[in-house]
Structures are given as structure tokens and as C-alpha cells.
Amino acid sequence: MDIDAFVTAHRPVWDRLDHLVKHRSSLTGAEVDELVDLYQRVATHLSIVRSSSGDAMLTGRLSALVARARSAVTGAHTPAWRELVRFFTVSFPVVAYRARWWWAATAVATIVLGWVIGAWVAKNPEVQAAIGSQDTITQLVEHDFADYYSENPAASFAGHVWLNNAWVAAQMIIFSVLLGLPIPYALYSNAANVGIGGGLMASRDKLDIFFGLITPHGLLELTAVFLAAAVGMRLGWTVIDPGPRRRVEALAEQGRAVMSVTLGLVVVLFVSGLIEAFVTPSGLPTWARIGIGVLAEAAFLAYVIVYGRRALRENETGDLERAPDVAPTA
């Protein structure tokens, strides 16, 4: 084979393929088709050169060109660490930030309900009697409530708390499959449990102990539960009001957003569990324990606001890139 004639005849094809590969991010549909066609032709040229010529330089050049074209055609695999970084700097915070009004409304409504129930229990002895006997309430207030945080080894208690909190948040996510309809009742049950405990402690002038023990971990823990509930109810609302998109597309996008929140809250609740296991029962002064909880809460909210707002400005949704079920809608 006349190698010089071969190169002269096919060099325009190689140069054109090289140009398309370098500008692959801005190709038109016709140019993408051309890229695929030229990739196949140059791969054939490489096979011919390898079998008919000993020109190592030409073989190397064509091999590199074919490899880059193959990457452009098939798509390069994104390293797992980049996907992880993107998840925690874009996907999770932007989904949480986009649900901020649902999140805030859920938190305010649940907290107010908990306060109302707590005040009702604290001011009504007949309500307390319906909850339990005087001896039972005394045992709870004087011993059981505080002992709960220190009766087990910290490490195993952290694992137990993490699983329990994850299950509470998971319930909110599971209920989203039912369009979020059971979520308000689940929030009511949670608010009632906290309110009853606080009301009983307040009735015996132990409210300082109640907040001293529940605040360090409770701030972050409840924030996570409120977020899970918010995105779950938002999923249900998407069915009612999908906006300009088709209802199936909107539901699919919001469903994937719910999954992003689920994965992110695994980490948030793990941190909350560590605080509950190692900080809440520690010998630190009450102000120090509460301070740690406040710092953890502030750090999480700042993280969501900073990264979520930035991602939203860049038109990120937290959804999968190039999701297959998304289509243009007029």
C-alpha cells in the first residue's frame, strides 16, 4: 500500500473528525450524525493501516483520534467521586432549597401544634391523668426521660438512633408514593408525642431538663423530618398542579427529587444521631450542649441556602441530567 497516497486521500476526513471531536459540546444534530459516520470510517482506516503498513507514527495518530472519537460518541464515564461531589454541592441542596417554602410551612405548623398540645397537657391535670398514673408520670419525669439518653453505650445508641430517625424520615418518603396524603397525620403524631412529653415535664417544672436534652439533637433531627415531609407533600401537589409540563413528566422529576433528599438525609440524620449519642448525655454544661446543636443546625441551613441558591441561579433542578422522560413542552 502506498502510505503517502493513503494519507493524502484520507487526511481531510481525519482533520474533519478531529474538528468535530474538539467541538462536540456544540454540535448540531447533523454534525453529530457526521461524527458517528466519520468515527466508523476512521476506525476502518486504522484497521487498514495496522494490517498493511508498519508506520508506527500514523498508527499512533489514528489510534489516538479513534479513541477520542469513541469517547465523544459513547460518552465518557464520570468518576464516582465527581458524582458524589455534585450530589452534595448541587443535587441535594438545590432540591431542599426549591422546597424551602413547603419546608418552612411544615416546620412552623408542626412546631405550633406541638406547643399547643404541650401547653394543653401541662395545664390540665385531667389530661395528665388520662395519659398515666401519678407514679408513672413521676417515673418518666424524674428518671426515664433523662436515663433514655445514657442507659446504652454511646456507639450502639448512635446506631439505634440513626436507624430510628431514618425510619421516621423514610415514612415521609414512603407516604409520598401515596401522593403525600398520610404525611400530615404522621407529622401530627410526631408533634403530639413531643408535645405530650414536654407538657408532662412542664407540669413538674422540668422544662429546663426537657429542652436541655432534646434541643442539641432535636433541632437537626426535626429539620430533617420536616424536609422529608415537605418534599413528600410537594410530590403530591405536583399531581394536582404540574405547571407547564405534562403531569407525568412533572411527577417523574419530583419523584427523583424525593430520592435525592432521601439519600442526603441519611448523612444529616447520621450527624443528628451522633449528637444525640455523644453530646446530649455528656457532662457538658447545658449551654454548651445546646450550642453544639444550634451550630449544627445553622451549618446545615447555611449549606442548603448557599449551595442551593447557587445551583438554582445556574438553572439546576437536582434532577438527573438528560433524564429520558423529559420532553419539550409548548
Rank of each mutant, 00 (worst) to 15 (best):
D2P: 09
L17G: 00
D18V: 04
H19S: 12
S25F: 09
S25E: 11
G29C: 13
A30G: 14
L35R: 01
V36T: 09
D37S: 14
R41A: 11
V42D: 03
V49D: 02
R61A: 08
A64T: 00
L65A: 05
L65D: 01
L65M: 09
L65V: 09
A67N: 13
A69Y: 03
A69Q: 02
S71F: 11
A72Y: 00
T74K: 09
V85E: 06
R86D: 08
T89W: 14
S91A: 14
V95H: 05
A99I: 04
A107Y: 10
T110A: 11
I111Y: 13
V112D: 04
I117Q: 00
A122L: 05
S133K: 00
H143F: 08
D147I: 03
Y148H: 13
Y149H: 04
E151R: 14
N152G: 12
A155V: 15
A155I: 15
S156M: 11
G159Y: 06
Q171T: 13
F175R: 02
L181F: 11
L181T: 10
I183A: 03
S189I: 07
A191L: 07
V194D: 00
G198C: 05
R204F: 04
F210A: 01
F211P: 01
G212D: 04
L213K: 01
T215Q: 10
A229V: 02
A230R: 02
T238Q: 03
T238H: 09
V239H: 10
P242D: 03
A250Q: 02
A252Q: 09
A252P: 05
A257Y: 06
V268T: 01
L269K: 04
F270S: 06
G273F: 00
G273R: 02
L274V: 12
G283I: 02
L284Y: 07
W287E: 12
A288T: 13
A298L: 12
F300R: 03
V304W: 00
V304I: 07
I305N: 05
R309L: 08
L312W: 15
G318M: 04
A323R: 09
D325A: 07
